[in-house]
């Protein structure tokens, strides 16, 4: 890995926090501006991958072990589908967010935010998982 190049280390240290913050902004501001869960998840994952490329995948694995990324992968999708089931229990159709609150607008807003969060979690989890698996495979091949 590129750990000995100090320019890359310093620049990426400066860049990673703003990238993550930007991902959160895209995530929760998607109903007012462009963006949403998909983009936010990818941006979040790219911050993580940048960290893994500069500081080594072993350090990155300490931050996000395999079980965590796999949990994110499944939890986001379950959250999305769960909101749908939940609105059915509240007496509406599947994924009818208006049921989530007395005011349909507030309900829609809440529902959209929750499912976008689920989307972001799954996308980030999927991207990081795929990246880590590629790395694991690469090491397995090098050992042979």
């Amino acid at each position: 890995m590129l750990t000995k190049t100090s320019i890359l280390r310093v620049v990426s240290k400066l860049l990673i926090p703003p990238i993550m913050l930007f991902a959160l902004y895209v995530q929760f501001h998607g109903d007012f501006g462009p963006g949403g869960g998909f983009q936010a998840g990818v941006i979040f994952a790219s911050a993580f991958i940048l960290y893994a490329l500069i500081f080594g995948v072993d350090n990155a694995r300490k931050v996000a072990p395999a079980w965590l990324t796999r949990l994110m992968l499944a939890a986001g999708l379950l959250l999305f589908a769960g909101v749908g089931v939940f609105t059915m229990f509240l007496g509406g159709d599947y994924l009818d967010y208006s049921m989530l609150s007395k005011d349909p607008h507030a309900g829609q807003h809440l529902g959209i935010n929750i499912i976008e969060f689920g989307v972001g979690t799954t996308v980030a989890g999927a991207m990081i998982t795929i990246f880590l698996i590629f790395d694991g495979r690469l090491r397995a091949e090098k050992k042979d």
């Binding site: 109903d31 949403g36 499944a74 829609q108 959209i112 499912i115 989307v119």
Partner: peptide, 28 residues
């Protein structure tokens, strides 16, 4: 009916919620 100023978001998440759920399932 939905509220958010970004119509793309309300179409994606609310009107076409099933499609988005499908897309997330594809990524999963």
């Amino acid at each position: 009916q939905v509220g958010p100023p970004n119509i793309v978001t309300s179409v994606l998440a609310s009107y076409r919620g099933y499609d988005t759920l499908g897309e997330v399932t594809v990524i999963f």
